[in-house]
Amino acid sequence: MADQTVQETFRRFSVLQRAVHLTVMFAFIGIGLTGFSMAFSSLAPARAFVWSLGGVESVRYLHRVCAVTLYLCVITEVVWLIYYKFLLRGNFFGPHSISFTKQDLLHFRDHMGYILALRNTPPPFERFAWWEKLDYWTLFIGMQTMGLTGLLLWFPEFFSRFVPGYFINLAQVLHFDEAVLAVLYKFFVHTTIRHFRPEVYPGDWTIFTGKTTKEKMMRTHPGEWARLNASGQIIPGGER
């Protein structure tokens, strides 16, 4: 009886992906808390938070530590990309890739159709569904603009040698506005989609354990499941 409840598991995320996600998660929470406590410094909770960390200087320092950590994760991803392409001979636009392809547009259309009850089944998502790719790329691209505006604010004297002074003011506005957007997106949209869906609630642990079940894989990534089964690449017991 007990054997029947044991589900077959398969590895979905590598250790590197899990480690990067964990680091990004903590650094993002840290950067959000420190950033907003400085941006809304007139509010009592922000003041209490800043006080608890030893003043605005230390909050600023921690904000930058988190920023550098986040960007190191971006660099890790780029290094991995190079390794994936040139050493592992991977395909940027293959079914395993996180890159957007034409297929994602079709999946998006079909998915909307499924949500609006125009279709009976969801599209056969591959390794990464369109919203997962969107999740990844919003952060990845957002990190470039946040990083650039953040650098302008970190070293204003240096950058004002090359750009007019009002660029610093622009950077401040853009940095804050995009921070609000990023936090709203990650804390509400990402968290809701990943962890608050009825079938995974109270949390989807795949990104932390790296493992997924056969049932979940067939349901959420049927295209990938079918492809791997057909090619005989799927090996039960935790590895693929």
Binding site: R11, S14, V15, L16, R18, A19, L87, G210
Partner: peptide, 13 residues
């Protein structure tokens, strides 16, 4: 070697 690193890191994790 790639696979060994993958398995080794999995073991540590």
């Amino acid at each position: 070697v790639h696979r060994k690193i993958q398995l080794g890191s999995e073991l540590v994790w």
